[in-house]
Design a protein around this nucleic acid. Sequence first.
DNA 1: CCAGAAATGGCAATCGGTTGCCAATAAGTT
DNA 2: AACTTATTGGCAACCGATTGCCATTTCTGG
Lengths: 342, 342
Amino acid sequence: MSAPPGVSPDRPATIHDVAALSGVAASTVSRALSTPGRVNFRTRERIQAAAAELKYVPNAQAKALSSGRTKAVAVLVADITNPFFFDIIRGTQLQLKAAGYTQLLVDTEESDEVEVNTVEQLRQTADGLILTASRLSDEALAKVSATMPIVTINRDAPGVPSVMLDTPTATNQALDHLISLGHTSIAYLSGPDTSSSSRRRWAGLSAAGQERGVTVVRLGPFAPRTYSGAAAADALVHSGATAGIAFNDLIAIGMLQRLRERGVHVPQDMSIVGCDDIFGADFCSPPLTTVTAPVERAGRDAVTMLLGQLNPGFGTAPRSHAILPTHLTIRGSTGPAPLRNT
Amino acid sequence: MSAPPGVSPDRPATIHDVAALSGVAASTVSRALSTPGRVNFRTRERIQAAAAELKYVPNAQAKALSSGRTKAVAVLVADITNPFFFDIIRGTQLQLKAAGYTQLLVDTEESDEVEVNTVEQLRQTADGLILTASRLSDEALAKVSATMPIVTINRDAPGVPSVMLDTPTATNQALDHLISLGHTSIAYLSGPDTSSSSRRRWAGLSAAGQERGVTVVRLGPFAPRTYSGAAAADALVHSGATAGIAFNDLIAIGMLQRLRERGVHVPQDMSIVGCDDIFGADFCSPPLTTVTAPVERAGRDAVTMLLGQLNPGFGTAPRSHAILPTHLTIRGSTGPAPLRNT
DNA sequence: CCAGAAATGGCAATCGGTTGCCAATAAGTT
DNA sequence: AACTTATTGGCAACCGATTGCCATTTCTGG
């Protein structure tokens, strides 16, 4: 071979350029590249050589337009500020990339309106959607699910494939842990009322508390941010409880800071349990006892399920529901209940 | 069992449906929606009503194909695992969404090969690129920049628009801070050799150290992860230095953990300075003295600059370089140099 | 009242692929 | 050698918009 004569001009090469260079029709090039069995071996080789020489890269838009599949998946997160979602995004990104899909990242700002608009927009831009902690109603979700393939994470709606982190079970373990440390008055620092996982968790705790004969009160709601921790900590102290289970680690970490400011020692005076085991939970002070959830895994599994919907019969039979186990990780923020005089 | 996915009674409305319903040609609908001045007021109203009734959403792919603009910007990060990049992503997401752009998130896995491939792929999929901490050579970057609009963050190459976080200045402040605390033997725990910001920082520290007559040694390189902190801490102790400036907060936090394990007290026995002021730097133990950089702002500014390139004459004159100031935030991980006997 | 400019809307080509359908060629049968 | 059956490759019709160019219609001024 000599120096390539058909070096790339300033315009990216199209399928027609490749066709011209290899002396076949555009349709043949298309088939050679996407349905290899359909084209003669030698022809295909020639085409591939031509494509390589021209540095041909198929135009994703054109492909999407004619095939109806965009090879893109949108991931909607409620709040990109929240480290919890980082882990999910990490998981989805990994798995999507491995499958050759593009990830569209969207922050819905915890607003169901933004969420619904975005879904509308994305209907034709993405092949599927992953909704994390969706604020949508069951009906709205079902409707979306009928329109296009979706998988939810931490949001269970009838008829909608979902990946759930089984935090209630571990939260109840946390309750038992606290009880075994002698606590009898425990508070749940709840998340937003719109959060279904917060509701589920409270339902579990409340029932378990009654069963075990300890007082469990619900405080809040608190925004799932570090800064809410101050209010949460104050409410907790005021409630008279000796231990608090927070909706998530952000609140818990915020509480830790506030309690220290107020001179309340953790865990001597007060025990704190978080949830999610986010980045930082292990090196805050004291290290946080928390519910460890396989968050990244949830992202990966959601992608796998979605891809299963998208390419039926590809791999294993597509599961439509997954419940990922969680466990309690005991660190330094929980300890024996303080002795009460009186 | 569930119904087969993707089966919806009515397909999304196209521009032709709207045209038919409002009794005009498709081209008129297109104009009414994107070039309002071009169409008569009454006609336009009729069209808009029809579009609303049919819930018409323009197909982004088709739009991209014919107009050549995708309204999407890709953000390449070296490692989605790193909290530093989350702040950038947050910034870009915010700003892109405000401008009606879609964000494509891509993890290049710290590999220049993946980076270059991705860029190739994205050339037609995105209108522009934001490269964070690119591993590419100056030439490669320049070539990419000639092909399509890009903005780099923390990577300065001739002829390529960039947003720089001015960490060297603050790192030198950190050095002064340590010197004023009595430290005379200081180490820089360097990041990957391929990181230009690590190189720049070391150049600055090394020069400043000489100028001020203190010993500054370079240790490493260390991977920019928490787990590298152990090796970094050990190296630091072994070096005999009494203070370390780490390439980033992840390493610094990892060092804090390791030093505690080894019974080295921070800041009594050893002072540690981080860089970036990521999530967690304020609540680790002890809280980390670090270089605070407006990372999210960098993401926003990069988008603004990119958008300026994309839509010339839209807003202000497009700057092509920005240097964002940083400052030293002193917390608990730095203190007076330990007294040396002999 | 009419020429000429401005406003308005439609036709059709185009973007870069995919795919159903058909023709031509190659291979296999009897 | 004639006939059937695979293979293989091309034609052309989409996919859903945008946009240059042209034909009307409406408005304006002389």
